[in-house]
Write a protein that binds this DNA or RNA. Structure first.
Length: 500
RNA sequence: GCGGGCAUAGUGUAGUCUGGUAUCACAUAGGCUUGCCAAGCCUAUAACUCGGGUUCAAAUCCCGGUGCCCGCACCA
């Protein structure tokens, strides 16, 4: 489906829509409706079950979303998240000042302040790459962070977090104290991040407020033991830098073992495999639509030593899109926050030596994955639309219908209430015909529908107290005793966990 | 930010050139009928992106704003 068509469908079904719609919308902001909210929760719960399931020492926390200025200064966001921009007074094209400067300054611009870049630019009298005239403006800073006035006087500067990771780094020292004083220690956060994107586009892919699920694993670079044998034979669809430089776009299948032989650390490959399994086996993206895209030195943030993006091919957006990533960030974060806070963030490892932990970061874009799950799992099957979500992701697990509105409604309503009390996400529907109800549920991704009919409510006979269960993907039906319903479907509603 | 295109019920559309308050389908709600896969009939709800201008009269013509799409740039 095209992006427009898919967005129209999601809007129509109340999955999501533009924020402040009645005022014309606000660029880059979206609201989730009932189905979208439920689906997003399930995605988050499913992510937690998998990634926190990797180790007993991986924990979920919820840091504040607002960061004091000192934090973003230390993290580098105040400086690096600010792009000095110049525009051309003749043709109004906009450029990044530092990129422009690199064209005349082969030694690079690393470490230069925005003001210094401006001075050099002015002296070098560069002409506009677009129209050729020498009418470039002075650089002005453009920071992608939202700044806020904080406190009563409003003169204290704070920022909405541009990524959720910072909260984990800030919490590390406390988490060390409240925990078992052991590395590796994992800190997971599911939260909103905010970026003042210049041009929000493609619905959920470039938002100004979005949800990230991230796991920061703090470890001793001298020893990060992982059960590598459990992933050794797994073949990963990787697209590595040398292949990319040859113009290749499709991934090659390479075993975890071979990746380690090529120089990647075992702990890195292990977590890349577990991430890959999450996308393939849990979210169930088609295996041939996934690729692990290695970022080159130039593309990575400078503190990332190794970076593979997890990309999935999306028809709606016409290509591979980044849904998550695995970053080896070294000791950059704790070094910077150690300096910024003047606190020693190193810890004493089991064998007694002091160590400043390194960080392996697993990131996951919740909104992007929600979109991707619609793109890849919402399919046309003949004349019906079916959202083939795994049962544990479905916003509504079960639909309950009376076959005859007059005769079976009371029974069906009672059954609905009973299943809801059992903790199953259930929806009653008696509108229109039975076929319409099935179709509506198919489109919402509901995996099971039960129908109360004459046999169910009969005072005697073999079908007394049984209902038909109809499966979304096959349309197959089966008679099940109502008392067995909850136990029959419950296990399929549990998000999978890694098995070792 | 720049350039181009687009904007009509919940969704998709006709009408715009050539001004006279809006077509059809699906969806939604209610009813009849039917009773396990979007059937049929009746009824109802429901729209001209916003603001200004021209005109007796604007969905239609003019100006501006907003949003969306495509390309460029941007995406720590």
């Amino acid at each position: 489906m095209k992006s427009d068509e898919l967005f129209a469908l999601l809007r129509r079904r109340g999955v999501l829509w533009p924020s402040a719609e009645i005022y014309g919308g606000a660029q880059g902001l979206y609201d989730y409706g009932p189905l979208g909210t439920a689906l997003k929760r399930r995605i988050e719960d499913t992510w937690s079950a998998w990634f926190l399931g990797l180790s007993e020492d991986y924990h979920l926390i919820e840091p504040a979303e607002i960061l004091p200025e000192a934090v973003v200064r230390a993290s580098g966001h105040l400086e690096n998240f600010t792009d000095p921009e110049v525009s051309c007074d003749s043709c109004h094209a906009v450029f990044r000042a530092d990129t422009l400067l690199e064209t005349v300054r082969p030694e690079g611009v690393d470490g230069l302040s925005a003001a210094r870049i401006g001075t050099i630019l002015a002296e070098s009298s560069i002409s506009c790459p677009s129209c050729g005239k020498r009418t470039l403006s002075v650089p002005r800073p453009f920071n992608m962070m939202f700044g806020l006035d904080f406190g009563v006087t409003g003169d204290e500067r704070v920022y909405l977090q541009p990524e959720t990771a910072q909260g984990s780094y800030l919490a590390f020292a406390r988490m060390w104290d409240v925990g078992r004083h052991a590395l590796p220690l994992g800190i997971a956060v599911i939260g909103r991040a905010y970026r003042n994107e210049i041009a929000p586009r493609q619905v959920l892919f470039r938002m100004r407020a979005f949800t990230q699920a991230e796991l920061q694993i703090f470890f001793d670079p001298a020893a990060f033991p992982v059960p590598f044998d459990s992933v050794r034979q797994e073949e990963l669809p990787v697209l590595r830098v040398p292949a990319r430089e040859r113009g290749q776009e499709s991934p090659e299948r390479v075993s975890a073992e071979k990746l380690v032989e090529s120089g990647l650390p075992e702990f890195y490959v292990y977590h890349m495999v577990q991430s890959y399994r999450f996308y393939r086996d849990v979210l169930k993206y088609p295996a041939d639509a996934i690729r692990l895209f290695e970022k080159s030195d130039a593309e990575r943030a400078f503190y990332n030593r190794i970076q593979f993006d997890v990309e999935v091919h999306l028809e709606s957006l016409g290509g591979y899109k980044e849904l998550g990533a695995v970053h080896y960030r070294g000791d950059y974060d704790l070094t910077r926050h150690g300096q910024g806070s003047a606190k020693d963030l190193s810890v004493t490892a089991k064998d007694g030596h002091r160590v400043l932990p390194h960080v392996l970061e697993l990131t996951f874009g919740v909104d992007r994955n929600l979109w991707a799950l619609a793109d890849t799992h919402l399919v046309r099957d003949g004349d019906r639309s079916v959202w083939k979500l795994p049962p544990y992701l479905a916003p509504v697990a079960l639909g309950v219908f009376p076959l005859l509105r007059k005769e079976h409604t009371a029974y069906a309503r009672a059954l609905t209430a009973e299943l809801a009390r059992d903790g199953i996400s259930v929806e009653f529907d008696d509108a229109g015909t039975i076929g319409k109800r099935y179709a509506r549920m198919d489109e919402a991704g509901t995996p099971y529908c039960v129908t109360v009919d004459g046999g169910t409510v009969a005072s005697e006979g073999a079908e007394r107290g049984t209902v038909t269960v109809r499966l979304r993907d096959t349309k197959a039906q089966e008679r099940v005793a109502r008392n067995d319903l909850a136990s029959r479907i419950r296990s399929s509603l549990q998000p999978p966990r890694p098995s070792g």
